[in-house]
Structure formats: C-alpha cells, structure tokens
Design a binder for these strands. Structure first.
Length: 247
DNA sequence: CTTCTTACA
DNA sequence: TGTAAGCA
C-alpha cells in the first residue's frame, strides 16, 4: 500500500498541489492521515482524486461530485465488489477502430490470410471492408489474434475462440447489467430525486462492466494458466529463467 | 528544502 | 487556478 506526500499525490493524479488542497477543503477528498504537520495520502486518496478530476473534466460541479460520492458511500457494497472507483480514473473509452491494409493483414497472418478466414472474421464483426483495405473494430483483438497465430495457433481456431469468447462475454456482461437493473435501478421510472443517481449509474455502467470483466480476466489468467499447463512445466520454465539470468 | 495557511488576483 | 509571504 503506497503512501504519498501531497506533491507525490498531485503528480500521480496529474494535477497540482493547489488543487488537491482545494478538493480537500471542499471535502471531496477524505482527510489524509497526519504525520505531525504533513499529510500522508493512500492509494484510496489517489483513486478518489482521479475520480474527482475526471468528473470535473466532464463538467460536474463540486456539489454534484460531493453528492455522488456520498451516494456511493451509503450504498457501498456493490461498488466495492465491482471496483467501481478504480475504474473511473482510467480511460475506458471504447476502443477506436483501426484501418488495416490487406498487406498488413498478410504480414500478420501469412498464408492463413485467406478469403475464407476473412469472410469469417467479417461475419464475426471483427473486420469490415473499407475500400481496398479493412477496418478492425477491435485492434486489440486483432493484435492478440495475430500474436496467437504467430505463435503457431491456426487462424481458424483463433476465430473459433473469438466467437466463443464473444458469446461468453456477452453472457456474463448481460448477467452483470441485469443484476444492476434488479438491485440498483429498481424502478422502471425513477422519482425526480432519483434521476441524477440513475443517470450517473447508467453512465458508469460500461466502465463498470469493463472493470469487472478485466479484474475477473486477470484472476482467471493467473489461476488457469498453471492449471492447464501444469505446475511442472511452469517450474521448469521458471528454472530456465534463473539459468538465463546467471548467464 | 518541503509543507501548510492565508490571502490576493 | 496560480502565486506569494511567512511559518513550522
């Protein structure tokens, strides 16, 4: 658990000491722990500070931010489980599509860049035609796929995986959103006082889903990789790394 | 030298 | 939001 002096905190969040003090005075930031005269901040403060800056940039007034923060604190359980706050400081904008030429694709996928696979990728919505070339709706998936192929996994199987992955993720994300609908956005029509809260929850639903899935994916990777590959293999590889370091 | 407070713009 | 003075 990292600790920050006010200058470190401001730097880490990309703002100034002055502003940190202002947010603190306006009670948007929780009071720091004091060590004599100097204030000691935690990671929680950093997360909160990033949140505040984000909301400020989106045009929220101090008072509105304060309201939302207290709203979250009163109904904390969901936010805790899903890491609500952790998300908001990050850029969770939707991935930007990227144009890719046929030449690039051929370089990435070699001879497996075939009309059949292209058709399949287009059916899966991974690739779209644009003039002579293509545009990838998810450069990250494209790059991940290219890496798998370069490691020797057949592109056909990579595409199978992409399809399966999309279905599974749709399923889980659907569940999550449904949970929020059932437990948080309980009214079909919110009362007038609830409208701002509802609106904020809706705005954060996408980053919230992404955060939950991201966290789950990280845990899964850590757990599943040794499970599937076996501890023996992992140990052997770790051992050879030691050899490499010594050399 | 850094932090904090207060004040002014 | 930046800057400055005076203090600890």
């Amino acid at each position: 658990m990292a600790e920050y002096r006010i200058d470190d905190l401001a730097r880490a969040a990309g703002t100034t000491v002055r502003n940190v003090r202002v947010y603190q005075d306006r009670e948007l930031l929780p009071p720091p722990r004091r060590q004599g005269r100097t204030a000691i901040y935690s990671d929680a403060h950093l997360v909160r500070l990033r949140l505040i800056i984000n909301m400020l940039e989106r045009g929220y007034a101090f008072a509105q931010i304060k309201e939302m923060i207290s709203a979250w604190e009163s109904g904390r359980s969901l936010g805790d489980v899903l890491g609500l706050e952790e998300v908001v400081g990050e850029s969770w904008a939707e991935e930007a599509p990227r144009a890719v030429t046929a030449t690039e694709l051929r370089r990435m996928f070699g001879k497996q860049f075939s009309p059949g696979n292209v058709k399949r990728a287009m059916e899966l919505g991974l690739l779209e035609r644009r003039g002579r070339g293509f545009v990838s709706q998810s450069p990250q998936l494209l790059d991940a796929g290219a890496e798998l192929v370069s490691l020797g996994v057949p592109l056909g199987e990579v595409l199978d995986l992409a399809e399966q992955l999309q279905q599974d993720i749709d399923h889980v994300a659907g569940h999550l959103v449904e949970m929020v609908r059932r437990h948080v956005l309980t009214r079909p029509v919110p009362t007038e006082e609830e409208v701002p809260y509802y609106s904020d929850v809706l705005q954060r639903l996408r980053p919230l889903v992404m955060s939950a899935l991201n966290a789950a994916a990280a845990r899964s990777a850590a757990r599943v990789i040794p499970e599937v590959l076996g501890d023996r293999l992992i140990e052997m590889v770790a051992g050879s790394e030691e050899h490499a370091k010594r050399a």
